[in-house]
Design a protein around this nucleic acid. Sequence first.
DNA 1: ACTTTATAGTTAAGCGGCTTTACTATTTTT
DNA 2: AAAAATAGTAAAGCCGCTTAACTATAAAGT
Lengths: 158, 158
Amino acid sequence: METKTQIIKKTIKKFASVALKYSASEELPVKVDETTVISTKEAHVIQAIGDNKNIGVTELGNFFAISKSAASQMVSKLESKGFIKKMRSQDNNKEINLILTELGKKAYTAHEQTHKKDNEFLLNKLSAFSLSQIATVSVMLESIEEIMDERLKKRMDE
Amino acid sequence: METKTQIIKKTIKKFASVALKYSASEELPVKVDETTVISTKEAHVIQAIGDNKNIGVTELGNFFAISKSAASQMVSKLESKGFIKKMRSQDNNKEINLILTELGKKAYTAHEQTHKKDNEFLLNKLSAFSLSQIATVSVMLESIEEIMDERLKKRMDE
DNA sequence: ACTTTATAGTTAAGCGGCTTTACTATTTTT
DNA sequence: AAAAATAGTAAAGCCGCTTAACTATAAAGT
């Protein structure tokens, strides 16, 4: 017979493995068209630029919690690949405003679409559960999140 | 008023963010002792070697679904850092048997301990839920997992 | 006003973890 | 014994990041 503790442990394990699979699936490259594939990181930066008109390099770095140097490198790469354009800000002469090119918009949409498809798939599957069941999951996820936050925080300053 | 669909969508989002946090926390380095820190990848390889006595390089590569070349590189690094030892197999002369050194065992334990601590923390928190609530979560996780598996599989051969 | 300081961005070097390609050395198959 | 498979290594290179050093512009301090 299984104790409650055992069941919880099993569930924790399940969560761990599903979470890792989710993040793995999040790492998969995105197909823009027959000849163009972008990495997830590229897709995310394109998304951020699409969602935040006129964002700059430093801002972008903060957004993803990476150094502005890393952001600059990413931006240069995306520009050389033709996904984005660096526009001098009209307010001042040191900032840059990033915007998507047509190709960039296409990439944005492609990335959006895959997420949309996945979410519909999931939505469909989860519709089988009752409202209260979903609520339970939600609450439990928040508990787990709390712990993750502590984990991340604690280990940071060890 | 929130529709069920909206609630599910919210829950999916929550899952996504928690899953990413989980995998981020899984990337944190592991402290072995006052002077030694290892990366998560290193910790996982050490764990695999500790758990699979006499595992070889190619096997290790398969285990983590990386090339045997990558496995070889990792193994060499861990050996030069003194965590593992490469022993010629006694059955034949081309295979290698990997074993943990004392330091390696220490690293194994350190890694194990952090997981144990985290799990106890989680176990504690989740004990507040009823058995049937936990069961629901479990079932739902399996649904999500199924979809992840399809996601991963489908995108692989596109 | 003009010098100091802050802010935005870039560049160079390097690291971790991976891939592919090419290679050596043992086994196994035929 | 020759051919093919298997185990491992090495070299080169890619991706995404870091830190450090740098330039250029803008804002503040006195």
